[in-house]
């Protein structure tokens, strides 16, 4: 609309130009918000598995939107159709946008054909979190696992994604490994494609 003054009026969110995504907020703002997300969900559950599932759900919602956003902005409306392609998209593009850096590593599981792992020495969502003893193996990385699952699932690669702490020698804090276990049909079609 022309001539409505400094502030443009948009009737529809889709009419807005897509932002370049360079805006930032302080890390504390995010950390405090994330902490409220965890605390709120803690009031809604009575066990750790349930809490992780709810954090994963929240992450999934983020992942689904990030995929759509980044396919428009970074990839000229193209989406990866190959397993390795989508994995490196998560490990590089998605990670870089969300967490400001490429993930530390992306590896294929040695024991199982259908498992891949993304590892991060200090995952953003685990940075300000210390797990009380009585909460055992609870991992806020479940949120990041949800993001990964949201991206993969919506790109057509259904998987079960979980977050785990892996102790590292000589380091106080464990690293977070996000384990991706693809569903059978994904692996099947991946293998079909890989045959030369």
């Amino acid at each position: 609309m022309i001539g409505v003054g400094k502030i443009k009026q948009y009737t529809n969110v889709l009419d807005k130009p897509l932002s370049k995504g360079k805006q930032e907020v302080s890390l504390s703002a995010f950390a405090l918000l994330f902490s409220e997300l965890v605390q709120y969900n803690q009031t809604q559950v009575d066990n750790i598995a349930e809490l992780e599932r709810r954090l994963e759900d929240a992450g999934y919602a983020v992942g689904a939107r990030v995929l759509e956003l980044l396919c428009h902005r970074e990839k000229g409306n193209r989406r990866e159709t190959r397993l390795i392609g989508i994995l490196s998209f998560v490990h590089s593009t998605v990670w870089k946008v969300l967490f400001g850096k490429i993930a530390d590593s992306l590896e294929k599981g040695t024991e199982h054909e259908d498992e891949y792992m993304i590892s991060e020495k200090e995952l953003l969502v685990n940075r300000f979190i210390s797990i009380p003893k009585d909460m055992g193996a609870f991992n806020c990385g479940a949120f990041a696992a949800g993001v990964v699952r949201g991206v993969l699932d919506n790109a057509g690669f259904p998987a079960v994604v979980t977050a785990h702490f892996v102790p590292v020698e000589g380091q106080q804090r464990p690293r977070t490994t996000i384990l991706i276990k693809f569903s059978e049909e994904v692996i099947y079609s991946h293998l079909m494609h890989s045959i030369p």
Partner: peptide, 27 residues
């Protein structure tokens, strides 16, 4: 101050907030 503190991408913040609001609406 803003220039000197650690920052994160605003989209992570925005989308996470959106996820919170959606959870609350569902619950």
């Amino acid at each position: 101050i803003f220039a000197s503190v650690e920052r994160v991408n605003a989209e992570l913040f925005t989308l996470t907030y959106g996820a919170i609001v959606r959870q609350l609406i569902t619950d």
